[in-house]
Nucleic acid binder design. Structure first.
Lengths: 252, 252
DNA sequence: GTGTTTATCGTCAGGCAGACGACTATGATC
DNA sequence: GATCATAGTCGTCTGCCTGACGATAAACAC
């Protein structure tokens, strides 16, 4: 059978981003308001088409930079600063997921520290951080009294998968530090776990666990009283990426 | 900005399959010999183009059935019989991964019990089970004295990712049973773990662990002496999918 | 029968996690 | 300035799980 390019049905390929952060003790995701059909006016995950000369990871990093100004970490350089963790999540290709045409979307997951404010082309009204439960609940009303319409396309499924990936990955990796600024305290890291998992952890056992895991945290020498109470030691993320034994997520 | 389909560069979308099984105490993958350019005559992972009306999972299940005759499990029906486990692995979209055109490949991972023999369109010479180390090693010669040329395209990377996924997933899930026939012994399951991880496990501790994990194994009442020695109890996979606490992979 | 192989049950010590007491160091309030 | 509230840090104790390994059981080969 000779090679015949015309025999292969053409697809559009996009990247969609699940950008997660922790704000005010809640796990939040970046949502943008759609300006065009279909799903005009509805909230959606940021994303866009992959360019001809671009790798998938490059496309995701470009979209992330466009939406948030974040520079994506190269996973092979864990100690990099001022960047977010970015990894491929999964690919969604239901033939009917976009009514216009056949679109295959390669979803990526980004974890970022708390950022000042989203900017989507400078339009503050068309991008926001929203708690993931708010974005995922069907119907009802959000915090601002805004109708919580379901996300556009299959983005609720994508967001749900991304949240589940983040929840499980902070168990056995040091990825939770990606939600923290460069220097952070044990308490701040604990509040990240509590927000992502939606649980309350024992501060004493948590402290023992994270400070006792070699390579997880490196003390910087400084202290802070950001949270009130006794000053806390400041740490930086250590070189370790895999936690062994892992953090244990309490039973629900 | 109005909607303009011609503005989106067209991609070809394929599914590639990492089909793993355990044969003769070795982790093996299904490889097919390429009949056309590029990489003509080289070994590659089975795969093919996604059809216009097909979901990605459907396309992967179709390719799996074409290559092996296996019927893919629906992951939501864990107790299904005579089928392989199939899940999405990752997506590979380097602009240069296929010299002909821009191809994005959605790789899937399939785990199957030991099968009689591969069939690729009836041509036994163009498909085989090969130990993964043999497929992944650069250069050298395989068991049959065959030159172990690297796999076509980026399939070595895909296979490597699939093997790593399988290795980690049998730690915390009951997926290892997907390598076993419907009824199996604790020893057979242990040999699966040993082959996939490339380690030797203590039979007594392994027995205690798997029989003590609720929902992992269900005794069928029968016994067998397939392996010689004292007859062993036969088990079926239980309903549990997640193992908590997980199986521990020994340090290297 | 004897040896070999595999399966299965038990024992014991060490490590780790959950529960929780105690103490420390700051800011807020009276 | 004393008191209180808050958050951080260090310890202790108990129970569970794992790794190491002894012992027994039930088949087959000779």
């Amino acid at each position: 059978m000779p090679y015949d390019p015309s025999a292969f049905p053409p697809f559009a390929v996009t990247v969609d981003l699940v950008v997660l952060t922790v704000r005010r003790h809640a796990l939040c995701a970046l949502a943008v308001r759609r300006g065009e059909q279909p799903f005009q006016g509805r909230w959606a995950l940021p994303g866009g088409f992959v360019r001809t000369d671009e790798d998938l990871a490059q496309a995701a990093a470009r979209e992330l930079a466009e939406e948030t100004g974040l520079c994506a970490h190269d996973p092979s350089v864990p100690a990099q600063d001022n960047g977010a963790h970015l990894e491929q999540l999964a690919t969604y290709g239901d033939p009917k997921r976009d009514p216009r045409m056949r679109v295959v979307s390669v979803a990526h997951l980004a974890l970022a520290p708390d950022l000042p404010a989203p900017r989507a082309g400078g339009d503050a009204n068309s991008a926001r951080w929203a708690p993931v439960e708010e974005l995922l609940q069907q119907g009802g009303y959000g915090r601002d009294g805004e109708q919580a319409a379901p996300l556009a396309f299959d983005h609720a499924q994508i967001l749900s998968d991304g949240v589940e990936r983040a929840r499980s990955k902070i168990e056995y990796s040091s990825l939770a530090t990606a939600f923290c600024p460069t220097e952070f305290t044990v308490g701040e890291l604990r509040r990240v776990y509590e927000a992502v998992w939606g649980v309350v952890l024992d501060p004493r056992n948590f402290h023992r666990k994270v400070t006792g895991t070699p390579g997880f945290l490196v003390p910087t020498g400084g202290t802070t009283t950001r949270q009130g109470g006794r000053p806390a030691q400041l740490f930086r993320a250590g070189g370790a990426t895999l936690l062994n034994p892992p953090m244990l997520r309490p039973e629900v």
